[in-house]
Design a protein around this nucleic acid. Structure first.
Lengths: 226, 226
DNA sequence: GCACCCGCCGTACTTAGTACGATAGGCTAC
DNA sequence: GTAGCCTATCGTACTAAGTACGGCGGGTGC
């Protein structure tokens, strides 16, 4: 029964599992997964620590929950498109979601109980591949390949020694100078001749590999017309 | 206070940074990265907690160190082989190292300061690609692609809801039954028709994608003779 | 033989997860 | 309406973990 507007003054919007998980994502986004503590989360939610335990069993459940929340953000294949477009959009969407929430990659390794959004996601992609005419076996191959590439790329992006886009040179320059001694000549060559050049953006590498993979997969379809 | 004769007990092999890191790897291997604490590590080394701080600055340095130790285990390309063999061996070796130490994948996301073994590894692989005739730009493409795939595959292996090889059916069977309701039809199809079949081993998927990638990369070399 | 240094350790402070039970404010049944 | 109850929130407190700070003992250089 909604009555008074001043309801919120006395009663902040009630806590829910949903709000707990969203708050956890916000904290992890802002300060890394290390800054996500029950206490920091409670404070962010305007609540005392023990209150969150009425909506989740323990911190592990929060971690499982936010990983699943990230999967929520990944675009599912839409029926209208051809399979390559579906896969490309899905992969890009996944990569972007993981780069918005880099901590999710690290969590995936330890959380072995996928949530509903994760399962729904897997199911949709597998379904799209099957619908595109891939055999069950080829679907397994293709899915493992596409997912590995996507997650792995996101992992590398997260592990880059810098965060933004253009800062590459600024951060890598001194690092390179240190290596000039000659310990890592090929690394230095690649960096100075390519990566540190003005318009380079590691994120663009993603499309190269993705196209290469999709092209190669296309050849293994029964009907290579599309 | 027995300042006594039994000095032999007191004379354990002296602690070193090396021994600290190796001990840390052993603990993480045995019980997961979560079980690696300064105290557990000290006990494992037969020493008191504060002693380890004479060899590492803090726990973060330990984490950086053990990631680098894992890279130590990855086979570097050997000059004799042709580039595809080099890349294949390197990728397989990396995958195996990461599956021996799955916690390393999760750590890679948060540790953005690569150690010497990591740098040496990158340098060697880049050097092998350059020596194989790839342009600088193609080397960047190829390396991002191969590494992404390798790490991503290892990540998926680590995230599998089971550990061993043959246990797949045993663990997945009940899970599947729960899904039979029809929420994830394609996932169920893939599982029952393929993954849960007797000789299936997810690890074998690795070679499929790796060969596909290497084949495609070969076409982009200036001299596609080898 | 002595002072010094280095590697090890005891103590203790701080932060984090969370068990246990209390409480408050509304809601149900009479 | 009112007694009791239910549920979301909270207070307290215990445990585990990272680590600052200073002490100590034994081996070394002179």
């Amino acid at each position: 029964m909604p009555k008074s507007i001043s309801d919120s003054a006395h009663h902040r919007t009630p806590l829910t599992r949903e709000r707990v998980l969203r708050g956890a994502v916000e904290i992890a986004d802002a300060g890394g997964i290390g800054s996500l503590t029950i206490r920091s989360l409670a404070q962010h939610l305007g609540v005392k620590p023990m209150s969150v335990y009425h909506h989740v069993a323990n911190k592990d459940e929060i971690l499982d929950g936010i990983v699943d929340l990230v999967f929520t953000e990944i675009e599912l294949p839409s029926a209208g498109d051809d399979w390559r477009t579906q896969m490309r959009r899905r992969a890009n969407s996944a990569r972007l979601a993981l780069s918005r929430h880099p901590w999710a990659i690290g969590l995936m390794e330890s959380r072995t109980t996928p949530g509903p959004a994760t399962l729904r996601h897997h199911d949709a992609v597998i379904g799209a591949l099957r619908a595109a005419g891939f055999t069950v076996e080829m679907t397994a191959h293709a899915y493992a390949l596409l997912d590995s590439y996507t997650y792995g790329f996101a992992l590398q992006e997260a592990a880059l020694p810098f965060k933004g886009t253009e800062t590459v040179a600024g951060v890598a320059e001194p690092m390179m100078r240190q290596f000039s001694a000659g310990e890592y000549p090929h690394l230095v060559e690649l960096a100075t001749d390519h990566v540190l050049r003005p318009g380079y953006d590691f994120g663009n590498e993603f499309d190269f590999g993705l196209d290469l993979i999709l092209d190669a997969l296309a050849k293994s379809r029964p009907d290579p017309s599309t």
